[in-house]
């Protein structure tokens, strides 16, 4: 059962790679308009959760619903057309295509040429740095710039929700702040966000709710505020040196 204001809900998802089980009865809810963060150490199954939502990996059992309708059995392109966009782990830009082409690829599911052109302009106001780089090969950008392109690309489909896998990974502190700021901006424009992070303290700054994943099981969940003060989270993730 999912709450009426749930945009995305995973319930009792069990996932396997061959014999190895990666998720154990995973249940996660993303409320409409919220930023929800999934925290966890390496190999805890975070990226796999993203892949389940996007239909890149099929769960063995359990249900995934978006806006009340099941996503199980849909292909990735079909799921994207329902209104979910993604910023994949390590950006995954189309390295040999130009920045402009990368951003426009985000609008692949749309056919309204004029509105797409307007949205491209909007992206350039949101990410002003990309303006001079439009005809450059995406593969030649710095990591931070690539992250901007990946976010612009995701926004171009006018999604109702964006899923992001470790959007701050490998970025300098300056860019990390910038990215978090942008996520908040995007969210304020009405897009729900589900993000996977290892950096709990940063993620909890902007999230409404958070879940903590440990070897495929949700061990903690609640409002970001409560989790920030939870000693268990603090010990495991915010404790400075020995993170995860």
């Amino acid at each position: 059962m999912t709450a009426p204001d749930a945009l995305l809900a995973l319930s009792n998802v069990n996932t396997f790679y061959g014999q190895a089980q990666v998720h154990f009865d995973l249940s996660i809810t993303v409320a409409r308009g919220h930023i929800v963060c999934l925290l966890g150490g390496n190999a805890s199954g975070k990226s796999t959760t993203m892949k389940i939502i996007l239909g890149l990996v099929k769960p063995r059992s359990g249900e995934v619903t978006f806006d009340g309708a099941s996503l199980i059995g849909l292909t990735t392109p079909q799921i994207v057309r329902r209104g979910i966009a993604s910023v994949p782990e390590a950006r995954r830009l189309f390295a040999d295509m130009s920045v402009r082409e990368n951003i426009l690829m985000g609008a692949f599911v749309r056919n309204d040429r004029e509105a797409i052109a307007q949205d491209l302009d909007r992206m350039l106001t949101l990410f002003p740095k990309l303006g001079q780089r439009l005809s450059q090969r995406a593969g030649s950008l710095s990591g931070g710039e690539q992250q901007m392109v990946a976010m612009a690309r995701a926004l171009m489909s006018r999604p109702r929700m964006i899923v992001m896998d470790e959007p701050t990974m490998g970025l300098s502190p300056l860019y990390v702040d910038r990215v978090l700021e942008l996520i908040r901006t995007i969210n304020q424009e009405g897009v729900s966000v589900f993000m996977v992070e290892q950096n709990a303290s940063l993620a909890l700054e902007i999230a409404h709710e958070a879940y903590v994943l440990q070897t495929g099981k949700i061990v903690l969940s609640g409002s970001a505020k409560a989790l920030k003060d939870d000693p268990r989270v603090r010990d495991a993730y915010l404790g400075g040196s020995e993170a995860a």
Binding site: L56, T76, V80, M97, F108
Partner: peptide, 24 residues
Amino acid sequence: SKLGWAVRAASQDRDAAMQMGVDV
């Protein structure tokens, strides 16, 4: 062409292309 873009995107990163809505 749009299909041509899809071909180029898919040949650079198939999974990412699918996440843009490209039907492989």
